[in-house]
Amino acid sequence: MNIFRLTGDLSHLAAIIILLLKIWKTRSCAGISGKSQILFALVFTTRYLDLFSSFISLYNTVMKVIYIMCAYATVYLIYGKFKATYDGNHDTFRVEFLLIPVVLLAVLINHAFAPMEILWTFSIYLESVAILPQLFMISKTGEAETITTHYLFFLGLYRTLYLFNWIWRFYFEGFFDLIAVVAGLVQTILYCDFFYLYITKVLKGKKLSLPA
C-alpha cells in the first residue's frame, strides 16, 4: 500500500458517495446515466467474486463490499426509487457496442484462460469504458450539474492515481500488470477532455456547459 493507491481508493470512494448523496439529497437522478451505473455494478460484481475465494486484508474486503453495495444502491435509486426523475431519453448510448468487444477482448487477451481470470479481465476492460454512456449523455445535453462534475472528477482522479501507484510498484516491488496498466491508461485518457473543462470552468465557479 502506497500513498497513490490509498488516495486512489479514497478518491474512488468519494466519487461513489458523492453520487449517492447527490441523488438522495435532491431526490433526483437527472443528468445521471443509469447505463453507466449498471456497467459499474457489473464491473464490481465480476471483479470482486474473489471475496468468496481468497482473503487479502480486512481493508480490501471492507472496501470491496462497500463499493458493491453502493453500486447496487445507486442502480436501485435510478431505476427504482427515483425512476420518475431518470432522464432515459438522453441516456441513449448503445451499451452492446461496449459489452461485445469487451467480452471478446477478455476471452482473447487475459493472464490465464480460467473463468475467474476472464471475469476479472472483463471487469478491468469494462471499467475503462463504463463511463462513456455518462460522457455521451453530457455531450448530448450539453451541460452537467456541478455536483455531477465533482463525481466525474473524483472518478477520473482515482484511476489516474492508480497509474502513479503502478509506477511506484514497478520500481519498488517489481510489480507490473500489462492488462491493468493499458486499461487504466485508456480509462484515464477518456477523462482528459473532461479534466480540462473541469479545471478551466467548474473550478472557476462556472457551470459545465458545452458550446452548442
Partner: peptide
C-alpha cells in the same frame, strides 16, 4: 500464477 499478484488492488 501469472496475473495473480495484482488481485490485492481494488
Amino acid at each position: 500464477r501469472p496475473g495473480s499478484c495484482q488481485k490485492d488492488e481494488l
